[in-house]
């Protein structure tokens, strides 16, 4: 279905080199996290994949098709839910699909019910809690016709408890649908808990400095985050990131 390959991607603004020779790959049905400190160029990577910027060098392919500089090749979920206040929840979640084809409202309603938003389909975003809005935004990206989903720090604005709930919920939905996911975050625990692979980004210029395959079986439970193996990985990532800061 969907394989994303980024090769030798470079981008600089004026004389500021943001990305230098970045390589990464997201395989079919794989959940990959990009982990890096703030200002490591994570958003720039997304803007490049989304086709908002064109790279100075390098290539982005989706299923071996060149999508460099092309808009609308991936499904996107931003940091803020970005729901339209004048659309009801149902109208909002079909928006991304609406841009390309006739929206499938029945499917949307089913998906919203599974997301626990069944009672809220005709409400407006302002009437929902922060977590519910994020869930609606994720449903919107799932309903989008593209099979590759890019999530840009989707839970960073939520409080810790909502965040944990959202991570569990995201995993449960993801395990059923199995879309390919590229997940950007600066939260180490979140990256390990959710992903098949974690890529650690170095800062300025950004490039993948370490790749960690997460060995835990799915479905994963919350108690996983307290096991020695989990903490060991967390520690090693933490040290790698500390190493970046100390340079």
């Amino acid at each position: 279905m969907s394989t994303l390959q980024i090769s030798q991607l470079s981008k600089s603004f004026n004389s500021d080199i943001i990305l230098d020779q970045l390589n990464l790959k997201v395989n079919e049905g794989e959940f990959v996290s990009l982990l890096g400190p703030s200002g490591s160029g994570k958003s720039t990577i997304f803007h490049l994949i989304g086709g908002l910027y064109t790279p100075d060098n390098g290539k982005i392919t989706l299923n071996e098709k060149d999508i460099t500089g092309q808009k609308g090749s991936i499904s996107y979920m931003p940091q803020s839910p970005s729901l339209f206040p004048w659309r009801t929840v149902l109208e909002n979640v079909v928006l991304a699909q609406e841009l390309f084809e006739k929206p499938d409202k029945q499917k949307a309603i089913k998906m919203l019910e599974r997301a626990g938003l069944g009672e809220y389909i005709n409400r407006y975003p302002a009437q929902l809690s922060g977590g519910m809005r994020q869930r609606a935004a994720f449903v919107r990206s799932l309903l989008s016709p593209q099979s590759m989903i890019c999530l840009d720090e989707p839970f960073s604005a939520l409080d810790e408890f909502t965040r944990l709930d959202m991570q569990k919920w995201l995993l449960s939905i993801w395990e059923e649908e199995r879309p390919s996911v590229l997940f950007v975050t600066h939260n180490i625990e979140e990256a390990i808990y959710l992903s098949d692979r974690v890529l650690i980004l170095g800062v300025r210029p950004a490039s993948v400095i370490q790749e960690i395959t997460i060995p835990f079986e799915r479905p994963r439970t919350e108690s996983l985050t307290l096991t020695p193996d989990f903490l060991q990985i967390k520690k090693s990532i933490f040290q790698t990131l500390r190493g970046i800061d100390n340079d």
């Binding site: 808009k71 996107y76 931003p78 970005s82 841009l99 390309f100 989008s144």
Partner: peptide
């Protein structure tokens, strides 16, 4: 933010 979302989602 909404304009950015629309662009990323591939809106014309």
């Amino acid at each position: 933010e909404l304009i950015h979302y629309m662009k990323m989602a591939g809106a014309t």
